[in-house]
């Protein structure tokens, strides 16, 4: 058992051995423990680190989500990673990039486990209506264009039920809980980066249309009535589409279409 646990550690050597990508993971920064992989990747990018660099840690001490909410990043239980992207896109298109992460994770999970993940807007990956993956991205602009984007991805892989606080336990799940077996994190990492690279190559050649279509197919409430919580206000309507910038278009009862860029979709 001990040997197996040791072999599960995501060292740079091990990651290099399993990777199937040319770009993502070209440089690997692997840590036992880090404050936040996003913060580290952001600093690397500011210092000129190339696109494709991967920052990964066995645990994050200050993993975070939207609005500085805590992202539980327990040692060795999940994949806590960030990658640096430098897409040649105007700043106004930056909001499309995070869709790459959600769709790629979803495809990778499906391929490896046979489970059918669903998307919750904008980028939560859900299994049985419980969250197994969250994406938090950060962007820096230069001269009206994207200088770099940090895609931060957190996936609950080998947690067992009850391994979170009561509050998180109500909304979170892991691949292990859903599949009822332990997963090799390195294989999942390799598959996610592979899917991400394929999707990234595709949007560079063909634009984001197909990626957004894939996302919509995986979203159970697409074209359904939804409610979004923004600050302390709830907005309801029909989720009619995603626009060309990735914004959610919500048609209210009055027939007016609202463009939503941020908020918590209520289940």
């Amino acid at each position: 058992m001990k040997l197996r646990l040791m072999s599960d550690v995501l060292s740079e050597t091990k990651i290099k051995f399993v990777l199937k990508t040319k770009l993502f993971g070209k440089r690997i920064y692997a840590f036992w423990s880090i404050g936040s992989t996003n913060d580290f990747a952001y600093r690397l990018a500011m210092q000129g680190e190339d696109e494709g660099a991967l920052v990964i840690a066995e645990q994050q001490e200050r993993g975070r989500g939207r609005k500085a909410r805590v992202w539980d990043s327990q040692f060795g239980k999940g994949l806590w990673l960030s990658v640096i992207l430098r897409p040649d896109l105007p700043s106004s298109n930056a909001g499309l990039i995070p869709y790459l992460a959600g769709v790629s994770v979803s495809r990778a999970v499906e391929d490896l486990t046979g489970l059918q993940p669903e998307m919750k807007w904008p980028n939560d990956v859900m299994l049985n209506n419980m969250k197994c993956c969250g994406v938090l991205s950060e962007v820096n602009f230069k001269n009206g264009k994207i200088d770099f984007i940090i895609l931060g991805i957190g996936i609950n892989v080998n947690h067992e039920a009850g391994e979170w606080s009561d509050e998180i336990d109500k909304i979170a799940t892991s691949l292990r809980i859903e599949k009822n077996e332990r997963l090799e994190r390195a294989d999942l990492l390799a598959e996610i980066l592979f899917q991400l690279e394929q999707a990234y190559d595709d949007v560079k050649k063909n634009g984001f249309g197909q990626l957004l279509d894939q996302w919509k197919k995986r979203c159970p409430v697409f074209q359904q009535n939804i409610t979004i919580l923004q600050e302390d206000k709830k907005i309801s309507g029909t989720f009619i589409n995603l626009d060309e910038k990735g914004c959610l278009l919500l048609k209210g009862e009055d027939g007016k279409i609202k463009k939503i860029v941020a908020g918590d979709l209520l289940v």
Binding site: R66, G95, N123, V135, E138, C247, A262
Partner: peptide, 8 residues
């Protein structure tokens, strides 16, 4: 913020 993409 747009689509959980943060820009300081």
């Amino acid at each position: 913020e747009a689509m959980k993409l943060m820009n300081e």
